[in-house]
């Protein structure tokens, strides 16, 4: 395709357009926006009810519970990334633009993280208080979620892109995504655990940052290829 520089917008503008469009759409569907957050809170509430209210036990397992709940909340919100666009046809328009798809999907994933991952960061300290997480670990909890949840969005986007054309992709999505989430879970929960125990968290956070850099640099290509396969 020959691109006319006069009429076709530059890549930066295209990225901004995608980002603003996705954010606008997400903000107009506020109910859907709140669902993963409510889910996060409800799941965390179930654990003390199932395990008993002993303070020591809760403080011991709080990092794991918070991280697993964040993982599930991220999983739950994944389908919203491409599915509505697939149904109204705008996903195909995205594939037809003259800009590299692998770059455009970064804007989509980022918009998705802003609307689903970022609110988790705000909510997590409150839930940490509910679960008796030591106050010294709260900061590390937020930092680890800030480094980890974007990776979850990028990895999950690959699986969503692969299953976007399927009628019942939901259960399949968890089977495809959760095994790939394991490293993020290990280092994320490990960081909070170490902070609660008064140990150094540099190694854990460095690993989370490494995973994020790997995800940003490699996942967009896989997402673009998966979208092309799904919409072929």
């Amino acid at each position: 395709m020959i691109v006319d520089p006069q009429t076709s917008p530059r890549l930066g503008r295209a990225l901004r357009t995608v980002l603003v469009r996705d954010l606008t759409l997400a903000l107009r569907r506020r109910g859907e926006l709140a669902n993963p957050l409510v889910f996060f809170v409800v799941v965390v509430t179930m654990f003390p009810l199932g395990l008993g209210p002993e303070v020591d036990l809760l403080a011991r397992i709080a990092p794991g519970i918070l991280w697993v709940a964040a993982l599930l909340a991220a999983l739950l919100s994944l389908e919203a990334m491409f599915h509505p666009d697939y149904q109204d046809g705008s996903l195909e328009q995205l594939l037809l633009t003259p800009h590299p798809l692998a770059v455009l999907v970064i804007a989509k994933v980022f918009a998705h993280w802003l609307t689903t991952g970022l609110p988790l960061l705000v909510l997590a300290p409150l839930l940490g208080v509910l679960l008796q997480l030591p106050e010294s670990a709260t900061g590390v909890l937020v930092i680890s979620l800030a480094l980890g949840t974007p990776t979850l969005s990028f990895i999950g986007a690959i699986a969503v892109a692969l299953t976007v054309g399927l009628r019942r992709g939901g259960v399949l999505l968890s089977l495809l995504t959760l095994p790939l989430y394991v490293p993020v879970l290990i280092f994320g929960a490990g960081a909070v655990d170490s902070a609660a125990g008064g140990l150094s968290v540099v190694a854990h956070l460095s690993f989370l940052a490494t995973l994020l850099i790997l995800a940003i640099s490699l996942a967009p290509w896989a997402i673009a290829a998966a979208l092309r396969i799904s919409l072929e």
Binding site: I158, A159, T163, L166, L175, P179, A222, A226, S230
Partner: peptide, 30 residues
Amino acid sequence: ALQAAIPDRRAGARASALLALVGVVNIPII
């Protein structure tokens, strides 16, 4: 599961092939 979920055999093969490659990158990390 991905291969079985996609009705068109060849599309299923391509989608699951991509998943296998993502898996190969992830296996050492995991």
